[in-house]
Design a protein around this nucleic acid. Sequence first.
RNA 1: GCGCCUGUAGCUCAGUAGGAUAGAGCAGCUGCCUUCUAAGCAGCGGGUCGGGGGUUCGAAUCCCUCCAGGCGCGCCA
Length: 645
Amino acid sequence: MFRTKKKLKEKILARLSPEFPVTAAELELTPTPDQKLGDLALSIAFPLAKKLKTSPRTIATRAAELLSGIEGLSRVEVAGAGYINLYLDRDKFFREKLAGLNRTGLEPEEKKIIVEHTNINPNKAAHVGHLRNACLGDTLVRCLRYRGERVEVQNYIDDTGVQVVDVVFGLMELEKKSLADLERIEGRFDYYCWDLYTRVSRYLAENQEAQSRKAAILKKIEHGESPEADYAHLVSRRILRAHLATMKRLDIGYDVLPCESSILRLKFWEKAFARLRESGAIHLSTEGENAGCWVMKLEDEPEREKIIVRSDGTVTYVGKDIAYQMWKFGLLGQDFYYEPFLEDNGRPVWISSPTPTAYDVHFGAGSKVYNVIDVRQSYLQKVVVQGLKSLGYLEQAEKSIHFSYEMVALSPRSLAEINIDLSEEDRDRAFLEVSGRKGVGIKADDLLDRLEEKALAEVNKRNPELPESARREIARQIASAAVRYFMLKYARNSLIVFDFDEALNFEGETGPYLQYTAVRLRSIFRKFQERFGISGQEFLSQVDPETIRLSFLPEEEARDFWDLVIYACSLDEEVLRAIATLEFAGLAKFTFNLCQKFNSYYHHYPVLAEKDQNLQTLRLLTIHFIHEILCQALDLMGIRVPDKM
RNA sequence: GCGCCUGUAGCUCAGUAGGAUAGAGCAGCUGCCUUCUAAGCAGCGGGUCGGGGGUUCGAAUCCCUCCAGGCGCGCCA
């Protein structure tokens, strides 16, 4: 639809501009509220009326005359107070869309886009909040690729931070575990650490004197000293594998895993620090409360300074982030070394290494960077961008996008359901914030397990003839769809108060409903082959598109057909809009509406039982068309379509 | 105190680069499985778009103001 509109606009502009003062930017083709009013509406007459001091109706009438006979349009009419309604040449339109099914006609805008998402601290199991991040990030990646962009997916691993240190402290000091003992811990290691982390947090709160011992461990890990650094390495890698496995259940993957430990060892910060100092972006504060610190002035708040380097010479979180952001844009003049961490769908997932490796691969150096991080980090992300600006990298600052989203909170009811004890005060609250420290959270794998179990029970009932492995894979795909759609259907600024009943629902506006629609659609083709001995695809390949006439359709069916087809055609525009606004709720809603429209169509117009050959062919063609678009839309949201469910 | 965000049906939410009659899902009630998978379809009821003011041919959408709620603002990460 994007290209159709683009071409139409050019033609319209050519016709109108000799007589009216219009520009391309002012021409907007919007859908009409009802197909009786045509397919596309032009509301240009209203602003023109103001400019020319005439009535909108007069202008619209004249404009409609000028627009008559444009190729691709069958009619132009004036309606209401001055809308110019365009009627598409439906036969031609449908034929073109059928032929162009596999081409988006979209053009990439960037050389290389980096999307960073997931970024879970490798010290405990992933929870539902992390799922929202990963689902949003992965969907953005898919949308960008649909637009034709070259995208690199990064998952940043903070393997030396205080959160990992807490777990190492617990293993060494509280549990007195040797490195060999660690290897022997069986089962879900991320779950094990989830509990341990909570215990350590409590212990540290109650035993202030232990803080110094923890600080000592942190220092040793940062400097790569044994055995503390070995513990940190072992813990973070094993949990990282668990996280990647969790995300794999949702078909979410990554290209590269840059690690904090590599950043420290390769001294990225020192390079960035030198640049920041030389450019005057930061300066040494000599008096006041920040004396002895290197600070950065903030654009919006001139009275405030952000500390980048502490008075003891260590760098703050923001400082490190500025250095890292510089690397993403290729502004550091240095790269990591890399080695394969594991294989995913036959492709290696690379992890950074502080020392040279045998592999000649490079990452980073994007022309645009999206950081998927929750809204609470907005202030810090702003400071990072300010850092780039202060260094003179204006374009990079402009293309440094914080993709922010609200958190997933928990309803007291959901927590009660998984036997987490709450204080009386907490029980009365509308929602509770997830806290890894307190162990208050719903683990991603627990949710996925419950979804899969529920889906499997249903699949077992409906498709007992399938082998168990196939039924399990279908259940996994259904669980994945349920989670992914759940995470996308809310606008990103909307706080999700997680509720099991809602998340476990497979009916109505849910992922499984969308899948089910596609599955039923597919089964028409399967049944077609059983009935007529030729596959639906093959049958359609023998149809000459030129012979297709929408006039084969009875009046009412023609309306329903057109409603469905024209709606499906707006997928590309929905994707562009999603990218522009970083809002996927619209794309989710579009797909859901498409399914509703299709289900209604499906109900009214049988294919296999239809005796009229022309009608049957056209219906099969329609179903083929909708199926393709629906699968594209589902793929953008990372939703798989099983053959049966 | 300052900054950002939110307030739409009983509940959960779409719709906000101004456009024609404000939409879904859930919950409730009615129907539809010898008919391409009922995880479905068709229908009914349900609204001061937080309040007030303004801009406009036109406002849920933009501006002002008030009310209510959330988050952020560290020599933590």
